[in-house]
């Protein structure tokens, strides 16, 4: 399960990288989300890609706030049936 989660997290991180405007930003699960400069449109596209890739529906609360990239990634992964609960 842990390796499944790792694969899902890696995939979601790659989606984030493909959407953000500044491709020079390096980040991992521990990076503060503010440092990635992900805007609302980027978030919409990342959510969409995760939904398409994993055939799921993501329903994040409107007021969701994340401190780190990992918080965001784990919140998305929680909607993926194949992912174990972290």
């Amino acid at each position: 399960m842990a390796s499944d989660n790792e694969q899902i997290y890696t995939k979601i991180l790659s989606f984030i990288h493909s959407e953000i405007q500044d491709k020079s930003v390096e980040f991992d699960m521990d990076t503060p989300i503010a440092a990635v400069k992900i805007d609302s449109i980027d978030v919409i596209h990342v959510v969409f890609k995760v939904e398409e890739e994993f055939e799921t529906t993501i329903d994040l609360p409107q007021d969701s706030k994340f401190d780190t990239v990992g918080d965001f990634v784990r919140a998305l992964a929680a909607f993926i049936p194949a992912a174990g609960q972290a």
């Binding site: 449109i41 919409i44 596209h45 959510v47 969409f48 939904e51 398409e52």
Partner: peptide, 14 residues
């Protein structure tokens, strides 16, 4: 419509 009805997918987010 093509995505929804023919491909069984969601419309693109924008």
């Amino acid at each position: 419509w093509q995505r929804i009805l023919l491909e069984g997918r969601k419309p693109v987010p924008l």
